[in-house]
Write a protein that binds this DNA or RNA. Sequence first.
DNA 1: CAGGAATTTTCGCGCTTTGC
DNA 2: GCAAAGCGCGAAAATTCCTG
Length: 316
Amino acid sequence: MHTCLPPTDAIEEWLNCYPSFKGSYGHLLLEQKEDPPPDLAGSLVPYFESAHEDARKYFSEQIGIDLHPDSDGVQNEAELLYPRCLPVSARRGLFGEVMAGMLTEQYTYIGKHEWDVPIFLFRYHADVEKYLFDLSRNDTRTRQVFGRFGSDFLGLCLDYEGNVIRFIAGEAKWRDKLNAGTIETLMLGSWVTDRETGERARSGKGVWFEVNRDTPVPHGLRQLQRLLRERDPGGHSAAILSLDKALALRNPVPIPRTNLILIAGNDVPSRDERMSLIPWQEMPKEYTAPNDLQVVELILKDGGDLIDQIYDTLWS
DNA sequence: CAGGAATTTTCGCGCTTTGC
DNA sequence: GCAAAGCGCGAAAATTCCTG
């Protein structure tokens, strides 16, 4: 289970936060401070290890190699360590998903709910398993990792009895440079040219599209329930039961939902201080789902280096 | 205003499963 | 057999910015 609490002090030394709330819309701008704490990566590592622990154990069992650095007799051990061995872009994606969890537990979002991330769903990143499998048998092979389907991240809000009274489903994105064009492509989709008229238009397959197609119960919720049942059936019995009711095919009991969009990446010169990438004053009109929406922008400097520092030192 | 530097935008690439 | 989906990066082209 993921039990590590967010490194509150380090986060506060690292980021300036500018929250705002308007109706059912929450916006949180997070800017890296001028002088981030010296060993920031080190402060974040325990949380990342906790977040990846389930997947690490799971992949280890599935692949038949031991992913723990203390084990011996395995060739290319260091190369096989999940998630260190993953290609750059896959690491970036993972970073965004872990940060979605950390920030959700750290900051107050729209609705002021107390969010809990019991476990991360990385083990369902099916292509990673295959990647590790291939890598463990052929270390010369390098390739990219195929993305995982469904929501990037799920969190729960539990009542005092442990019942799930609300969940938060997040879409987390990392981009190396957060300039206007990148954001527009991210949110609205890439340019496509009409074959007949030759006109260019956004494909519409962006984050807004993903968030709006609001399946009442995301598949990730089923996966989350399965993990709870396997890893902590006693501690989360009430949560498992309420997810049962929500996932029932007949007469499901709906659980209120909050949507989260996390945009993370490096700052660019064209952005002024405290200037957000997505408007905070009003709920963006592109958002059509009925649920509460929380947007978080995490704007860093040399974020790629930080990610590499973190992922290079996990379990070392 | 020219000319080069800095930045942003665009386009293509990688990878695997799924569906027409 | 090919396009699309999901995760992004990186090189080249286009634009903007700055200085003499």
